[in-house]
Design a protein around this nucleic acid. Structure first.
Lengths: 262, 262
DNA sequence: AGAATAGTGTCTATCAGACACTATGCA
DNA sequence: TGCATAGTGTCTGATAGACACTATTCT
């Protein structure tokens, strides 16, 4: 790049090409300058597993564009006036939106940044750059979600049955965001403890296996999966919890995630 | 979130609360509205391996703030007027900046998005959200880089000797970006073919091993690494290239990356 | 008693790590 | 000739996958 338009760098060289003067002087002069700026939003891929099926939270659009279509929840990052009031961080915006869209208190779900989508025409109204995030919600909390959404219609859509089939086409580039989120979660499933964000606080071996199967989309050998599970117990990643899970058959031991594990 | 400020969604509900009318009408009215927007930049963590040492490209800042400090190269994403002229995509901005900062033609390096940094005060001048990327450059191209950078002083800094030691403190939140980039590359090294972006077009077993060692920061058993290498040959990921690499001792077979591999 | 799931054992193939070793070209 | 590096062989332990099997509880 040429001098004068680097990122967080020398953007004010047109106002202060020599770079002299105090920093305070510099900042004061800096505000005189204005370049066009994009709107910045966060979009959320909120995932859970219900009925052994991977689900995503979708909102029905009431406005143009894509009126009536389904879309990922999201919202603008609040930037205040961008100078004296700087507004919220991107992370804070994502947490705030997640709480607002689900009606659940902040911290109810695992939330992480996914990817920033910045194609010039991704929103027909104007230039919008969106920082996509993914959130993993326990199935025990999922039923409470729609209640929290004010006005807008919301639903848990099945990835397999509703989205991949094309029955529910998504607005904007949200299909791409969703696909990337699923790919990411699949990838992290075997390398990070994300799976524990998709089961109840306490869970059985079969329940954890069910989450893996729903996310990856194929079945696992129950015996082999149990051995992996046992290793996690041995490593201190998982610990026994009191009680048994009563099903229609032999009750199963319940476990909980142990944060102090490897 | 509440109606009226969702991300790429219903931002115009204040102007068109009923959602009726044609989409064209809607877009026309939409432009009347303005909220404060952040500046958006791309920052680049450009990495290479020289002398068995992981290096990062740094630029010396000539302006406030952080005048005289070292920083990652970067620049604004061009958004045109954000309406009729939408400007470039974030990816295009990253590629453009990489070419401008290095003086190398586009496509000379592997480039991927890393993470978006959006703390409200990360730039003291104003609200700036930066989409950080990382780029992996072959060591054979690295020496040509500084020549391409106009005016600004640039250097290949050693991560170990210059940055981690604290000898070269970085401006803004660039240390965090750098740390995240290194973590990411380490992570991908064994799961993706990124290592092939850090060796010459043709390379020996020892050269590829050297890249792994420089990135991870520990030595590998030569014999064991060779077996991994051989498996990649067997899988078609790597193929023999003509010629031998002449060193001070026994010449070594050279190989090349084969894109059609697994 | 029978169904269904919880939970165990075993065999094989693959791979990482440790390490001893041979082969070859240059100084 | 000696040395440094290229390149090979072997052993062990950890793990994934396939699959057969036992144990326990509910209906």
């Amino acid at each position: 790049m040429t001098r004068g338009d680097d990122g967080a760098g020398e953007g004010a060289s047109a106002a202060s090409a020599d770079g002299h003067g105090t920093e305070a002087d510099y900042l004061a002069r800096y505000r005189e300058l204005q370049w066009p700026r994009p709107s910045v939003t966060v979009d959320l891929v909120v995932l859970t597993v219900l009925d052994a099926d991977l689900k995503v939270l979708l909102i029905r659009r009431k406005e143009h564009p894509f009126q009536g279509a389904w879309a990922l929840p999201g919202g603008f990052v609040r930037v205040g006036d961008a100078y004296d009031d700087r507004g919220e961080s991107v992370e804070a915006a994502a947490h705030r939106e997640l709480a607002e869209e689900t009606g659940l208190p902040e911290g109810s779900a695992y939330l992480a940044q996914l990817h920033t989508f910045g194609a010039p025409d991704r929103d027909p109204r104007m230039r919008v750059i969106s920082v996509a995030h993914y959130a993993l919600l326990r199935p025990t909390l999922a039923p409470f979600v729609t209640a929290g959404t004010d006005a807008a219609e919301a639903r848990w859509a099945s990835l397999r049955a509703d989205v991949d089939s094309g029955a529910l086409p998504l607005a904007f580039d949200h299909a791409e965001m969703l696909a990337m989120a699923v790919r990411r979660v699949r990838d992290e499933l075997d390398r990070t403890p994300v799976a524990f964000s998709l089961v109840p606080e306490t869970f059985t071996v079969a329940e954890l296996r069910g989450v893996h199967e729903a996310v990856v989309g194929e079945t696992y050998d129950a015996g082999n999966f149990r051995r992996r599970f046992q290793r996690m117990v041995a490593d201190g990643l998982i610990e026994e919890a009191p009680g048994k899970r009563v099903t229609g058959t032999k009750p199963a031991q319940v476990y909980r995630f142990s944060a102090r594990g490897a």
